[in-house]
Design a protein around this nucleic acid. Structure first.
Lengths: 223, 223
DNA sequence: GTCTATAATACGATAGAC
DNA sequence: GTCTATCGTATTATAGAC
């Protein structure tokens, strides 16, 4: 008998009177809590005790499943990298015209960020605290996630629908335009308290304006 | 007799044989070290001991000058907010044609980021760790720094040289395209180890491509 | 103004009961 | 598999000498 994820993990006590849990569910709960904590505070700043409290278990369990703080961190980083690949790959962007593929990529990135608004901070924490030492182990996944965008830009230039541009720099500019919005959200809500920048309607506005800006900035107007 | 900032702060011992220092210089050294530390690790993750070591003084001095960790953090946040204003205001962007002013703004932002590559992390740390609780105290400064860009976009639309766009969203998109480059640097160096993304030549490439993308994305092509 | 020494606490990790 | 209790260390902060 397994717990359903999302409900309280306690199972009624066994005949011995001791409460028991589903190990796989516990592991996932720890990972979820750790992702939030490490996103907020990074590897050094993250508190094992805080993760345990959020996950509803004790610090001893974390050491039982992940050996130590660093092992847990490594496991936390792995999941989003895989999910990013899994979000991009099934789109089969290589089979679409560059312009269509680009818009689809942009909307997928923004939807991913909207679904995990603070997950990107994981990578900024990693970059700034550890100079990407743990990120380094995942370069393969990220190359897979970003490669399709490079490919789109090169195909667009080749067929003449995109103007001449540097694919790598343009990739960074596109991602920046899409993602920065979510990074600054918690600060900017104090600049413009009346707008809920994470509401679906406002995120959709962000997506539309992003697509418009990037397409206008990249399309070859002589074409 | 004062120390010159940047050289070793020790002054030859006085007649009593006790080494002395310039209090103002000490304070600045603490602020510099603290900015680096808090940028890397945020308020909670930052270590007073690490700041003291970098500044070349003891932890006792930090408490002497800034009362406690939180007081030091508050002082650290204040300086970049002021400097951002001081970088933008003298450009007198309101007196330039929108297109010229926009390019100047973009290049100023990128130059500022290149000069302080990890300073932007201060704000991300603040956003994610503290939900902008300390940022809130500085909204005035940031409104002053960003206001000119909003103004440029609105003037451009009014005179018809810019297409119809949302000034606030476009501001975020522009900043994202300019700044994201520096945020991901430490991770992406592992994706493309052969390129030194902080070298002046590559930063200039980034600036050129940014200007090109943003201007092309914003200009009214019917104009 | 700056240091050394230390008190007080917070945190990561482990042992051992159940 | 999960908990309670605890050890050892790292960290913030302070007291007091110079």
């Amino acid at each position: 008998m397994r717990c359903i994820a999302g409900v309280l993990p306690m199972i009624s006590s066994s005949s011995s009177g001791r409460s028991v849990r589903d190990p796989e569910a516990t592991k996932q709960q720890i990972l979820d809590a750790a992702e939030a904590e490490f996103s907020r505070r990074g590897l050094q700043g993250g508190r094992i005790e805080a993760i345990a409290r959020t996950a509803g278990i004790t610090t001893a369990m974390i050491h039982y499943y992940f050996e130590n703080k660093e092992g847990l961190y490594r496991s936390v980083l792995c999941r989003p990298a895989q999910e990013a690949c899994e979000a991009i790959a099934p789109l089969q962007l290589e089979k679409l015209p560059p312009k269509v593929a680009l818009e689809k990529f942009i909307r997928t990135v923004i939807a991913y960020e909207a679904a995990h608004p603070q997950r990107c901070m994981l990578w900024f924490q990693e970059a700034n605290q550890n100079q990407g030492e743990y990120f380094k182990l995942l370069t393969g996944h990220w190359a897979d996630a970003i490669g399709p965008l490079i490919d789109i830009l090169e195909r667009g230039m080749a067929e003449g629908s995109f103007r001449a541009l540097d694919p790598w720099l343009t990739t960074v500019h596109i991602l920046g335009a899409c993602i920065f919005y979510f990074n600054i959200h918690e600060n900017w809500k104090h600049l413009m308290p009346e707008v809920d920048r994470l509401s679906p309607a406002v995120v959709e506005q962000h997506a539309q304006e992003s697509v418009r800006l990037i397409l206008a900035g990249i399309l070859n107007h002589k074409f």
